[in-house]
């Protein structure tokens, strides 16, 4: 249709090349940080006997979500161990936790900023829309471009994919804090940071926790996809199942992903309810 082709792909690769070469030290530092986190988390958890780790997870589930879910978690985890997917589950869990930590470190301040500054909110809103409508595996491309293959780009892609809901819900939660509560704090002579720490964040906590919950769920789904770029974990087993047409094996790994998803969901939802129960 056109006599020429707009060189989008050239621009992008040039841009990426430029960034990677100019800021290589930065990327390297970030890379090793992520690697360090995931690796230590994983090694730490694997150092424990599976039963001990299981007990810890089941206990947390029990605390946060009651004994029914805890019972489910116990059976799910025992099954995982039994079918030989325990290590994969631990690996996936470390990836998700690391990515979620990054999401919180970046997402909470951005969400708070968006709640306090309308102009920043107006700017970030379309960006978040864009991020959320993008198909998940498209995130793999820039991650690979910047960080190559392996676990680090997997975490990065997961981080980017899971970031929007936390920013959105933090923003929403803080904006929904009743105006009278803010007026009360002002009337008693609160500073801005006192207002934030003693009123806005605690009152918004149930909503913020809903954001954490959503982003963990998104993160988990992304971590599985990230197996395509070598992130490892349960996704790898799913992928192998698909590639070799081993329906049973792929399905087993999928099942364990679901078990993990349910446990993580109920735990974080439990957190939300705990902070919600007084309001």
């Amino acid at each position: 249709m056109f006599p020429f082709r707009i060189p989008v792909r050239d621009w992008i690769s040039k841009g990426v090349d430029y960034l990677v070469s100019e800021y290589s030290a930065l990327f390297d530092a970030f890379s090793s940080l992520v690697y360090f986190l995931v690796d230590h988390l994983k090694e730490g958890m694997l150092a424990l006997p599976p039963l001990a780790l299981m007990a810890i997870i089941v206990l947390i589930t029990w605390k946060m979500a009651g004994w029914r879910v805890a019972l489910f978690a116990l059976f799910g985890l025992l099954l995982t161990e039994n079918i030989g997917l325990w290590d994969a589950l631990v690996e996936t869990l470390s990836l998700v936790i690391t990515a979620e930590l990054l999401v919180m470190v970046v997402g909470l301040p951005l969400g708070i900023m968006a709640a306090r500054r309308d102009r920043f909110d107006a700017f970030i809103r379309p960006v978040l829309d864009f991020m959320q409508t993008m198909p998940a595996f498209v995130y793999l491309i820039p991650a690979v471009m910047f960080f190559g293959l392996g676990l680090v780009p997997g975490v990065v892609a997961t981080f980017v994919f899971a970031l929007p809901p936390l920013i959105r819900l933090t923003n929403l939660g803080i904006r929904q804090v009743p105006a009278e509560l803010i007026e009360a704090a002002d009337a008693f002579g609160a500073t801005n940071s006192q207002k934030l720490l003693k009123v806005q964040i605690p009152v918004a906590m149930p909503t913020i926790m809903a954001g954490v919950n959503q982003s963990i769920m998104l993160g988990l789904s992304m971590v599985v996809i990230a197996a395509m770029i070598g992130a490892g974990g349960l996704g790898e087993d799913v992928l192998r199942g698909i590639q070799r047409l081993q329906v049973g094996q792929g399905f087993e790994a999928g099942l364990v992903v679901v078990i993990l998803a349910i446990i993580l969901d109920r735990i974080t939802a439990g957190f939300g309810n705990k902070s919600n129960q007084h309001s």
Binding site: E180, E183, A184, P202, S279
Partner: peptide, 22 residues
């Protein structure tokens, strides 16, 4: 802020405006 702290007993509101998490 200082003036509010030393002069006003905060404020009492129609819908109480007390903190639900405390």
């Amino acid at each position: 802020r200082e003036f509010r702290r030393k002069t006003f007993c905060g404020m009492v509101f129609q819908n109480f405006a007390i903190l639900p998490h405390r």
